[in-house]
Amino acid sequence: MTISAEAPLKVSVISHDQGAWLEGLVADLDALATPLALTITLNVPEALPGSIASRTDIRWRHNDRPQGFGANHNRAFEQGGGEWFAVLNPDLRLPSDPFPALQEAVDAAEVGVVAPRMLAPDGAFDDNARFFPSPMDLVRKAFGRHEGRVPISGDAPQAAGWLGGMFLFFPRAVFARLGGFDEGFHLYYEDVDLCARLWKRGYRVEVVPGATAVHHAQRASRRDLRYMGWHLRSIARYFYKHFGRLPEKPGSQAA
């Protein structure tokens, strides 16, 4: 068992009535060689599986009312400690330990955040490393004519515009210097905004193909009007903050 409050790696996970997924992720974290401290935020009341409900080596946070993605991870970060800070979705599985390769990559100069290469459950490559979007990109995507994903080859770290928030790995000092996630985004585009702010401050954003994780994507905004509304408001907020003010090279399709 590698979960310890004193570990230099602090991992934050949010569950929104996702206990079944959470059980599998915790089992995978238990099996890793990398020591880590784990904070799990229960965003809504839920009955947890017996295998994790009584765990005292996990730091539990219970919200009186649901909070957004960024707010929950920021509160977990504020509990302090450690050299690295990682944000993970509960619907991830870790068939191997991604953290040594991520630590090595993020310890390089001017690297602000890294992520493993994400796989779908069938083994296909997921799209967690992407170019920054433009309004026209979103129109083309709505009609199935724009991918936006960064082409990845080999195992060496490589630059991406932004990385999906299902798995992000930071040097703690960088996350603190950035002020964490912008809590004005409720659920979507916090990751895009954070990566844009990193690039603007001179940090690199990189995907590490030599590390992998499996993502059982939920895609809630495609079938729930409430989530779709949050998604659209977040897109509007992102473009209000950043449109026309992004770095010219990193993360652009011309890069």
Rank of each mutant, 00 (worst) to 15 (best):
M1P: 13
M1A: 13
A7D: 04
A7T: 05
V11D: 01
V13T: 08
V13N: 06
G24C: 10
A27S: 14
D28H: 04
D28A: 12
D30K: 03
L32V: 11
L36K: 02
N43P: 09
V44C: 02
V44R: 08
E46Q: 14
G50M: 09
A53C: 03
A53R: 06
T56V: 11
D57E: 08
I58L: 04
I58G: 04
I58H: 06
W60C: 09
R61A: 03
H62C: 00
Q67L: 13
Q67V: 10
G70P: 03
A71G: 01
N72Q: 07
N74S: 02
F77V: 06
Q79E: 14
E83Q: 12
W84Y: 15
F85T: 09
N89W: 07
P90S: 15
D91M: 06
L94W: 00
P95Q: 13
P100A: 08
A101C: 08
L102Y: 11
L102W: 09
Q103D: 05
E104N: 13
E104A: 15
A105G: 14
A105S: 12
V106S: 06
A108M: 14
G112W: 07
V113H: 04
V113I: 15
V114L: 10
V114K: 11
V114E: 08
A115T: 09
A115S: 15
P116D: 05
L119I: 12
A120V: 04
P121I: 11
D122W: 14
D126L: 13
N128T: 12
F132Q: 06
D137F: 02
F143E: 10
G144E: 14
H146L: 03
G148W: 04
G148D: 05
R149I: 10
P151K: 01
P151N: 07
I152N: 09
G154F: 02
G154S: 09
G154P: 10
D155I: 07
P157I: 00
Q158G: 11
A160F: 04
L163H: 04
L163V: 08
M166A: 12
M166S: 09
L168A: 09
V174Y: 01
V174S: 09
L178W: 00
F181L: 05
D182Y: 01
F185Q: 06
L187N: 10
Y189A: 08
D191A: 07
K200R: 14
R201Q: 12
R204M: 02
R204F: 00
E206Y: 00
E206L: 13
V207M: 11
V207G: 05
V208D: 04
G210I: 10
A211S: 09
A211F: 01
T212S: 14
H216N: 11
A217F: 13
A220L: 15
A220W: 10
S221R: 15
S221Q: 15
R222F: 13
R222D: 13
R222I: 11
R223Q: 11
R226V: 14
Y227L: 10
Y227M: 15
M228L: 15
M228C: 08
W230Y: 15
W230R: 12
I235C: 05
A236L: 14
H242R: 12
P247I: 12
E248S: 06
E248D: 11
P250V: 02
G251M: 00
S252R: 13
Q253L: 02
